[in-house]
């Protein structure tokens, strides 16, 4: 009797340890301000392409996931500090970021960034181009000949083109598409799209290889059975690049 009790206790203890050791709850960090990747819907919940992909991935990897919002500027420091376990926030895989964190394989093909302007003849080489502070787009414009003007939020970069502060805005193409569609002809795409970044992947701590393996496998399975392509078309339209 005594030994049974003891062993139950032992099992209970090891079970809780196993719970705490493996990720019993995986916290997914996102920004919530980057439609269609992730945004806050009318009900106040996180919604968008990444919400659906993330939920599906957790289902396939048999993980319990919870969504967390975090400011873009501190999204990586908070990951490495352990405040959540993944970043799923439309983050392009770049060499700089890869040095600090690990990425899963991409769940969104390498993206193009594009210029949007108020008129066809906007000067993209020597004019004023708006971009969000601390994005790869801002870095690209800083190195091109154009005059870079940086705003804190993507919203303000669009506003800058509308009110004439900037000749054009340079941002992720998928972010710009709905803006152009709904502008009623005020805004249009100009110039050629520029391929930047290596696709969008989930960011994880480098020490979390096991979790990364699970998500990688889940992404592969979503790619293979076509569910990922369906979601891509659903959120980004028919013209989106698929797998």
């Amino acid at each position: 009797m005594k030994s049974i009790l003891l062993s139950t206790v032992a099992v209970a203890i090891t079970a809780t340890f196993a719970m705490a050791d493996g990720h019993s709850v995986v916290r997914m960090g996102t920004e919530g301000a980057y439609a269609p990747y992730n945004f806050i819907n009318d009900a106040g919940e996180i919604d968008g392409f990444e919400r659906e992909v993330g939920d599906e991935l957790c289902l396939r990897a048999e993980l319990t996931c919870e969504w967390v919002k975090n400011d873009w500027d501190s999204i990586i420091p908070n990951l490495v500090s352990g405040n959540y376990d993944t970043i799923i926030a439309g983050m392009s895989i770049t060499a700089e970021r890869d040095e600090v964190i690990d990425f899963t394989q991409d769940y969104y093909p390498p993206t193009a960034s594009a210029y949007v302007a108020g008129s066809e003849d906007a000067d993209l080489e020597g004019g004023v181009v708006a971009a969000q502070t601390a994005t790869i787009q801002a870095g690209y414009i800083a190195e091109s000949g154009a005059t870079l003007v940086e705003f804190a939020t993507p919203e303000e970069t669009i506003a800058a083109v509308r009110n004439g502060e900037a000749d054009a805005v340079f941002a992720d193409r998928d972010f710009l598409v709905p803006m152009v569609e709904e502008s009623g002809g005020d805004l249009l795409f100009v110039g050629e799209p520029v391929p930047l970044g290596g696709g969008v992947g989930m960011g994880l701590r480098e020490s979390d290889a096991e979790l990364r393996g699970k998500f990688d496998a889940a992404i592969t399975s979503m790619k293979e059975d076509g569910t990922l392509n369906e979601l891509l078309v659903k959120w980004f339209g028919d013209e989106v690049a698929t797998y």
Partner: peptide, 10 residues
């Protein structure tokens, strides 16, 4: 520059 006015040419 933190939240209000844009930064020009870094």
């Amino acid at each position: 520059f933190f939240s209000s006015f844009p930064a020009w040419q870094q």
